[in-house]
Structure formats: C-alpha cells, structure tokens
Amino acid sequence: MTSSLDTRSAGDRRRTRAYLVEFAIGMVAYVALLGLALAFAPAAAPGPARWLLALAPAIAIGWVAVAVVRHLRRIDERQRLQTLEGLSIGFVVAMLSAVALGLLEPFGLSVIGGPWWIYGAGMLAWLATSLVQRVR
C-alpha cells in the first residue's frame, strides 16, 4: 500500500540509529562521570582537582550537544526546520526562566536548584513544541 501508513524508510532508520547510539554514549558517560564526581569530589581537597571532578559530567553533556548537532546535519530540511524551531522556543523559555530567577534573588526569593529549573523549563518547552509539531 502506498499511503502515509508506510513504515519508515531505510534512511530514517539509519539516521535514528546513529543519533540514538551517539546520544546513548553521552548518557552512559554522564552517569559514569557523575558517579565518579559523587564518589570522589566531596572528599577531594578544595582546589582545581575538586573543580575538575565536580564538572566532569559536563564533558558528557557537551558530547550530547555534539550528538544533537550531528543529528541536525543528518536529518532532512523539514525535520531540521522543526527541530530548530523547537530548540529556539526552548532557548527563549530557558532565558526567560533565567531572568525570572535572577529577578527573584535580590528580594530574597531565590529558588533551590535554580539552574535545574532553567534547564527543565527549556527542555519542557522543546518537548512541548515537538509534540505540537507532530499533531499539526
């Protein structure tokens, strides 16, 4: 049958597999480096070593960012447009969240785990945009 019910193309599967493999590598590395940081950073003497251990998981997140960019370069023009739209909206929401939290601080209204709320808001906005694009 030649309809929209066709399964994904070989190219779709190849691109998705490549992204999932690269993303999974980043997530596994993140968990490993986070474990390393949690195990050794608290006991490390204050100084560069402690900073490096605490920030080590960010290396894995940097790789995830690379994986997303590589995925953007692999997907087709319509998918790229949609992904960039989602990323743009996520970025704007993250920036607005950062400004909102920044405005709260001078008034003694700081939120515990502030950066994670910014991260969560941006990611949720990206996810919500992706879902809207799917039903549109």
Partner: peptide, 19 residues
C-alpha cells in the same frame, strides 16, 4: 508503484517529509 518510504530513500529525506 513506489511507497512513500522508497521515494524518501530516493530523495534522501524522511518518510514523514514525503507525506
């Protein structure tokens, strides 16, 4: 007689884009 998936592969785009 092509499926959307076959056309997608021929154009190097996703099946959803063909749709």
């Amino acid at each position: 007689g092509w499926t959307q998936a076959r056309l997608a592969d021929a154009l190097d785009v996703s099946r959803q884009t063909v749709n």
